[in-house]
């Protein structure tokens, strides 16, 4: 019984560095836990690395581009999570974006049509003039 208690008390002492692999979120790199086996490569959410965690009391996230852990203070970590949450577009954002692009496309077409119309008007005027000239020369 005493042995069991000792074992239980020892468990929280284990750090992620005591395991061969550390698991992190593929979405924001946040440390999830540690494992004896590497994570499934096809897992969309969890990945694993053999890079050890640095010493310190920061919030760690794995940066795949440099293959190292980055440390964040509590405030930085909070802001980082907030930004990630804010950067997910909702229906309202999609609606606004589509309206803006639609408006721009329509206005662009309107400008182009206006220019085309002006060109055609100039051409028609030229042709009318030429026609009048030929008519006049015929009657003369």
């Amino acid at each position: 019984m005493e042995e069991n208690e000792e074992r239980l008390n020892l468990e929280p002492e284990a750090s992620p560095n005591d395991f061969p692999y550390r698991l992190y979120s593929k979405i924001n790199g946040a440390l999830i836990g540690a494992s004896m086996t590497p994570a499934d490569k096809d897992d969309p959410e969890v990945a694993s690395t053999s890079v050890p965690l640095p010493d310190g009391e920061l919030n760690y996230a794995f940066d795949e581009s440099i293959n190292l852990w980055r440390g964040y203070t509590n405030e930085e970590w909070f802001n980082r999570l907030n930004e990630a949450a804010l950067s997910i577009p909702d229906n309202n954002d999609e609606w606004r974006a589509s309206i803006m692009t639609q408006m721009a496309v329509l206005n662009k077409q309107l400008v182009q049509l206006g220019l085309q119309n002006a060109k055609l008007t100039a051409r028609v005027t030229e042709l009318e003039k030429a026609l009048n000239n030929t008519k006049e020369s015929e009657t003369n």
Binding site: M100, K108, V111
Partner: peptide, 27 residues
């Protein structure tokens, strides 16, 4: 603010922002 927000969320491309400036002056 709206345009910046939508650009950061990758709903508007750099060309879209250009078109809004060029062709949607009412915005």
């Amino acid at each position: 603010d709206i345009c910046q927000d939508l650009y950061n969320k990758e709903l508007l491309s750099i060309e879209d922002i250009r078109d809004v400036v060029l062709y949607s002056p009412m915005f």
